[in-house]
Nucleic acid binder design. Structure first.
Length: 293
RNA sequence: GGGAGGGUAGCGAAGAGGCUAAACGCGGCAGACUGUAAAUCUGUUACCUACGGUUUCGGCAGUUCGAAUCUGCCCCCUCCCA
């Protein structure tokens, strides 16, 4: 059985996954886009290296902050890792908050190979022009896409220039999970409590030395575009550079984390078939009591 | 005590007689999502028994066919001089 423990940041996924891991003697595959990075610990709320269960984790600390990363690579690593682990374990836990990584790994998502087609001509086009162009070459891809979502419009055009269009690629998939026996446990706490929790956790990160962690990162690495996008890191960088006061920096991180949590909830609720739990405590209780698990 | 400027939806902030239930930003809520996803983007946000109705722009009383916008009084806030 594959147990996916998911939920927004600050919902207590890690705690619950550890309890479940002990109970089932199962390994844990990380499904968090930023916990894959080494030396990004405090800001990603990663389990400590000296934790007794640290060694049960996979896809944790596997990349340098200077490396870029993508869903495609994650999907590849996930499937490879899972295959290996399944030889040894009956139960496997997947824990993380990056919905797309989870979905792309579990379902038959198939990312086209990048042939490095030239798309430099697209940069100078307006959103409207890009959208019109996409309508010509892949009208179906346009249906659920807003013209202002420039990034995705460009990606869809790029895919089409690669060979198969995005919609053709999606059509040829069955939209089914490629694994059987998967249960997705979704921790969806009360909103007010979640937000409070996030606010407190950010303050705690600063107490634990987030600023120093970021300083060390800047000294040791040329951060990749992906690593640089992490909430809690980009803001502290602005603080270090004097663009924000400490207070502004903290508040901004809290706000962006709350916004992010909201987006995660939307994703889990609507993109995955989840069993919902109202708190990590509830999940943990059911695990311990052996209810349903 | 004298002088100046203010009080607008959850917050910030426009509007200076009808086109205003009130721009815009933030926050909130809802949603999309197939190579940066802690990203990118969209919708919505006074209230209601909602193709219509009800009550709003510090308070009260006026002027006017019509007021957030004009007048009077009152209550608060900020700054400057005492």
């Amino acid at each position: 059985m594959i147990y996916v423990v998911c939920g927004p940041t600050g919902s207590g996924k890690t705690k619950a996954s550890l309890v479940l891991s002990e109970k089932l003697s199962a390994p844990i595959i990380n499904a968090d886009a930023f916990q894959i990075y080494q030396d990004m610990n405090i800001g990603t709320a990663k389990i400590e290296k000296d934790h007794p269960l640290y060694d049960r984790h996979f896809l944790l600390d596997i990349k340098k902050p200077s490396d870029s990363f993508s869903v495609q690579e994650y999907q590849y690593l996930f499937r490879k890792t899972l295959e290996q682990l399944q030889k040894q374990y009956d139960n496997i836990i997947v824990c993380g908050g990056t919905g797309l990584y989870i979905k792309a790994s579990l379902y038959d998502y198939d990312f086209p190979k990048d042939n490095n087609v030239d798309v430099s001509d697209l940069e100078k086009l307006s959103n409207g022009e890009l959208f019109a162009l996409l309508e010509e070459i892949d009208h179906d891809a346009t249906i659920n896409l807003h013209k202002n979502n420039r990034k995705r419009v460009i990606r869809a055009i790029t895919i089409a220039r690669n060979g198969l269009t995005k919609s053709e690629n999606i059509q040829k998939q069955k939209h089914e999970m490629i694994y059987s026996d998967v249960r997705i446990l979704f921790i969806n706490p009360d909103r007010t409590k979640l937000y409070e929790n996030i606010n407190n956790r950010v303050d705690q990160m600063f107490d634990e030395g987030l600023v120093n962690e970021v300083k060390n990162l800047l000294n040791n690495y040329e951060l990749s575009l992906t690593a640089k996008a992490a909430i809690g890191y980009k803001e502290v960088i602005s603080y270090i550079q004097g663009e924000l006061s400490l207070e502004e920096c903290k508040e901004l991180i809290k706000k962006r984390t709350r916004n992010y949590a909201k987006r995660q909830i939307t994703y889990f609720k609507n993109q995955l078939e989840c069993e919902a739990y109202s708190s990590s405590e509830q999940l943990i209780k059911e695990i311990k009591d052996g209810i349903n698990i």
